[in-house]
C-alpha cells in the first residue's frame, strides 16, 4: 500500500512535469508572438527586440525551458506579461475561489443526486422513477453555463435574492457563502443528474443481491436494508466517478466564473490565453492539471479505504 501511494505520488509529479513541458513548447512552437501582445502591434522594431531580450524570448528554446524549469521548482512561476505581477501570487489569490466552487458543486451533486437515485431505485418503475429519468436525461446534457444563466436571470435579476457579480471577501464568510450558492447550483445540478443515474443503476444491482434478500428475511426494516446494507455497497462505484467529475467541474468552473463575474482560475486562464500571457497560461494550466491528477489519485486511494476488498498492485 505504501509503495503504491509513493508510486502514485511520483506519477503525479511526472504528469505535472509533462503537462508543463507540453504547454511550454505548444505555446512557443505555435504561431503568435507574446512580445507583440505586450507592446501592441505598432511598436518600433528596436523596442520589440529589446523587450524580447528582456523577457528572454530571444534565447534558444531549450535554454528558456531550463530557466523556466529551474525557477518553477523553486516556486517561482514567473511574472505576468500583462500585469507584471508574480504568477504564483495571482494563482494563490484565485485558486481558493475555484477550489471552493468545485468542491461546493461536487457536494451539491452528491447531496441532491444520491438521495434521488436511491429513491428512484427503491420506487423502481413508479412515477417518481419515470420523472427522475426524464429530469436526469435533460440535466445530464445541459451545459452548466446555461443553467448558470437561467439561475442568474431568475434568482439574481428577477427575484434579486443573490448577488449577480463577484464572490465576496474572505473575511465575510456569509458573503462568500451567499455568492457561492448560485454558481455551485449551476455546476452541481448537472452533476446531480449524473450521480442520480449512477446511484440508481448501482442500487438496482445491489438490491438484487442475495444478502439483501437475507437481510429482508431477517425481518430488518426496509430503511435499514436500503441505507445500511444496500447504499453502502452501491456508493463504492459512485465514489470512483467522483475523480472524473471533479475534473469536469473544474473545466466547467471556467465558464461559470465568467457568467457570475467571479474571480477564479478560469477567468485567469481565459484572460491569459486571449492576451498571450505565456507565464500565466503555463502556471494556471499546470495547477489545473495537478489538481485534476491529485483528485484522481485521492479517489483511487479512497476506493481502497472504503472497500477493503480492493487490493492495489
Amino acid at each position: 500500500m505504501t509503495k503504491y501511494i509513493l508510486l502514485r505520488v511520483v506519477y503525479l509529479f511526472l504528469t505535472a512535469f509533462a503537462v508543463l513541458t507540453i504547454v511550454f513548447f505548444a505555446l512557443r512552437v505555435l504561431p503568435g508572438d507574446p512580445v507583440y501582445a505586450v507592446l501592441g502591434g505598432e511598436a518600433p522594431p528596436e523596442i520589440v527586440e529589446q523587450t524580447r531580450h528582456e523577457l528572454g524570448f530571444d534565447r534558444p528554446l531549450y535554454e528558456q525551458f531550463a530557466i523556466y524549469l529551474s525557477s518553477f521548482i523553486q516556486g517561482d512561476l514567473g511574472v505576468s506579461l500583462q500585469s507584471k505581477r508574480p504568477v504564483a501570487e495571482m494563482i494563490a489569490m484565485m485558486l481558493p475561489h475555484t477550489v471552493l466552487l468545485a468542491l461546493a458543486a461536487i457536494a451539491t451533486g452528491l447531496i441532491i443526486g444520491v438521495p434521488l437515485g436511491v429513491m428512484a431505485a427503491v420506487k423502481r418503475n413508479g412515477w417518481f422513477d419515470s420523472l427522475s429519468r426524464i429530469i436526469g436525461v435533460s440535466f445530464i446534457a445541459t451545459p452548466p453555463f446555461f443553467v448558470a444563466i437561467i439561475l442568474l436571470l431568475v434568482f439574481g435579476f428577477w427575484i434579486g435574492a443573490f448577488p449577480i457579480v463577484g464572490a465576496g471577501e474572505w473575511n465575510q464568510p456569509w458573503d462568500i457563502l451567499h455568492a457561492l450558492i448560485l454558481p455551485a447550483l449551476a455546476l452541481g445540478i448537472p452533476k446531480a443528474a449524473h450521480m442520480m443515474r449512477f446511484t440508481r443503476s448501482y442500487m438496482l444491482e445491489v438490491l438484487n443481491e442475495d444478502y439483501i434478500r437475507t437481510a429482508r428475511a431477517k425481518g430488518l426494516r426496509e430503511r435499514v436494508v436500503v441505507f445500511t446494507h444496500a447504499l453502502k455497497n452501491a456508493l463504492i462505484p459512485v465514489v470512483t466517478i467522483l475523480g472524473n467529475q471533479l475534473g469536469q467541474v473544474i473545466g466547467g468552473a471556467v465558464l461559470i466564473e465568467t457568467v457570475f463575474t467571479r474571480p477564479g482560475m478560469g477567468r485567469l486562464v481565459v484572460e491569459a490565453i486571449s492576451g498571450r500571457d505565456f507565464p500565466v497560461v503555463q502556471g494556471t494550466i499546470v495547477v489545473f492539471s495537478f489538481f485534476v491528477a491529485t483528485s484522481n489519485m485521492l479517489v483511487d486511494l479512497a476506493y481502497g479505504l472504503i472497500d477493503p476488498r480492493v487490493r492495489y498492485r
Binding site: V269, I273, F288, V292
Partner: peptide
C-alpha cells in the same frame, strides 16, 4: 499512451482554449 494520460489531466475545455489561442 503516456501522452494521452497527460492530456487527460487537462480539462478538455482548457485544451480547446489553448489550441484556439495558438491557432487563432
Amino acid at each position: 499512451m503516456r501522452f494521452v494520460d497527460v492530456m487527460m489531466a487537462i480539462p478538455m475545455i482548457i485544451t480547446g482554449l489553448l489550441m484556439v489561442a495558438a491557432l487563432g
